[in-house]
């Protein structure tokens, strides 16, 4: 098994997804199964191959430095689950 429960706990923490202990065990076997299947890639000879950056053959375009703002603060805050005084709010963060 390529992933154990501890590894699942670590990546779930990085991804900010709560997992119960039962889920950890279950996910460890499920994800290991997927990762073992994915491991077939290791047998491909990729010596000297550049990793693909984009299938688009074009060059990155840039925009002019012009101010365009077509939403108001109300629009930006409209879907927020919680807010106060024009701010988004979250539980207090201790630095």
């Amino acid at each position: 098994m390529s992933l154990d429960a501890a590894a699942v706990a670590r990546i779930a923490r990085l991804a900010r997804i709560r997992v119960t202990d039962d889920e950890k065990t279950h996910l460890a076997s499920e994800l290991s199964q997927v990762m073992d299947w994915i491991d077939q890639l290791q047998s491909v000879d990729t010596d000297g191959v550049e990793p693909l950056t984009s299938v688009v053959g074009a060059r990155l375009k840039t925009r002019a430095d012009v101010v365009i703002l077509n939403v108001t603060r109300d629009d930006v805050l409209a879907n927020a689950p919680e807010g106060m005084a024009g701010f988004f709010t979250v539980p207090k963060v201790v630095e």
């Binding site: 840039t62 925009r63 002019a64 430095d65 101010v67 365009i68 703002l69 603060r73 024009g86 701010f87």
Partner: peptide, 30 residues
């Protein structure tokens, strides 16, 4: 395209991209 002025009222210089609304995409300022 949101403005960069200092000292604006909170969240008044926020575009849909800056608020990371679903489906929004970055376009580089040349």
């Amino acid at each position: 395209g949101a403005p960069t002025d200092f000292g604006g009222e909170p969240n008044t210089q926020v575009s849909l991209v800056d608020a990371a609304m679903p489906g929004m995409l970055p376009v580089l300022n040349g």
